[in-house]
Write a protein that binds this DNA or RNA. Structure first.
Lengths: 232, 232
DNA sequence: TAGTGGTCTAGACCACCCT
DNA sequence: GGGTGGTCTAGACCACTAC
């Protein structure tokens, strides 16, 4: 059983129960790791693992010397797994394919260069492609790649490899900003997504950079009706 | 130093470096924990901790017997901290207040009852309120509370305490589904949010339950232009 | 300064699953 | 069957910080 009291999952479940059922009210001080280990008949390491994860989840506040307390204001924390588009489509049981609409080196608009902290008018590689689920438009990908960081990119055929997959394979570790919003489609986007002009669509804007420089800026415009789901 | 090679953070940093710099390319098989422990001169437990966290973050795929590989499709994981609305407004440097629009016990629509797994026509407490930032509408909160789980709720004045804050104070541990989407405003919503009818707005639907029963279903409709931001 | 959590070690057994 | 990661143990030392 992985729910035995002397497994870390078992200990964690029991701690959770006491928190949920208000045996330990928010703000109250818990027994020390050593005491709990004695009570549960397991090693302190095991209790530590159980409590560490609860602290990471925000349910407990832990301080050396001061001990462990039930968190007063559990800020609910949502974890979103952002899959690559192909996986997202296939997880829905649909067949995925994509079509390259445009792949061209051109001066980027200031909305892109300013977000990426590049000088206005910088030439970048502009890639637009449409992703399909079972032959229906699923989302429009509009991406700008910083050629100063990605010289190779100009020689790639993004009709064969999606830009997303190419980036994953070729760019070292990156961080990014993501924002989610709702916009009304313009005429061009609407026709590509088989939507009505002005219809509300879900948009993800993502800016990616590595330690040195900006890498790419992308806007994903989903077809109408898209929902992003998660569980707390 | 917590970046020594024989600390788990140090090991993790070194593993990350090898992944980022393509010493280990996506899909390739890594040395075993025991081998790495030998190389770094630390215990296998330490290597395990470092690798476990990378696997949880999606960078590694681990299987017993099959070993550890660099993930082919690193699904990036986004952590969203969902603040209570008041905090969200005040973090933007705006003054928050809210107005109760409606608080009434009435049969819930089937869109709500079916999501909450209650029988059609169940009477629930319907609370609608409008939240403001610096006297401009910020979002519309439309909430249904399951009276079977929250008998006390009928006696509360949600003009004084927001339903969100009351729930946090009064309902033990809960889980929930959240979904994000984009919709076009109807006439009523548009006028409340000072938006054009049909304008695209960002919507959060959240369903909350405890171990036994559904608690509440809420739709937050943000005023046009709202963005939800986070960092990877 | 003393008590608490954070971490490391060396060893062990087990669950899983590829071959 | 055997190799791999998953976990537990008992003990130890250390870092932080309330007192």
């Amino acid at each position: 059983m992985n729910q035995d009291v002397n497994s870390w999952r078992g200990v964690q479940a029991e701690l959770l129960r006491r928190i949920n059922e208000r045996e330990w009210v928010p703000g109250s001080l818990l027994p020390t790791e050593a005491e709990l280990a004695g009570e549960f008949g397991c090693a302190r390491t095991t209790v530590n693992r159980a409590m560490r994860e609860l602290a990471e989840a925000g349910l407990l506040d832990r301080k050396r010397r001061a001990g462990t307390r039930v968190a007063l204001h559990p800020t609910s924390r949502v974890v979103l797994d952002i899959p690559i588009i192909r996986q997202e489509v296939e997880q829905r049981g649909a067949r995925w394919h994509h079509a390259l609409l445009e792949q061209r080196t051109e001066p980027a608009p200031t909305s892109v260069t300013s977000r990426m902290d590049l000088s206005a008018g910088t030439k970048m590689l502009h890639v637009r492609s449409l992703h399909f689920a079972d032959n229906h438009p699923f989302l429009l990908e509009d991406r700008w790649l910083n050629l100063a960081a990605l010289a190779d990119a100009e020689t790639v055929d993004f009709g064969k490899v999606t830009s997303n997959e190419w980036l994953i394979q070729n760019v070292p570790y990156t961080t990014g900003d993501i924002s989610f919003s709702a916009i009304s489609t313009d005429a061009d986007t609407a026709s590509l997504l088989e939507a009505q002009e002005g219809e509300a669509v879900f948009v993800v804007d993502r800016l990616t950079w590595n330690e040195r420089e900006p890498i790419t800026s992308v806007r994903l415009t989903y077809a109408p009706g898209y929902r992003l789901n998660t569980r707390v």
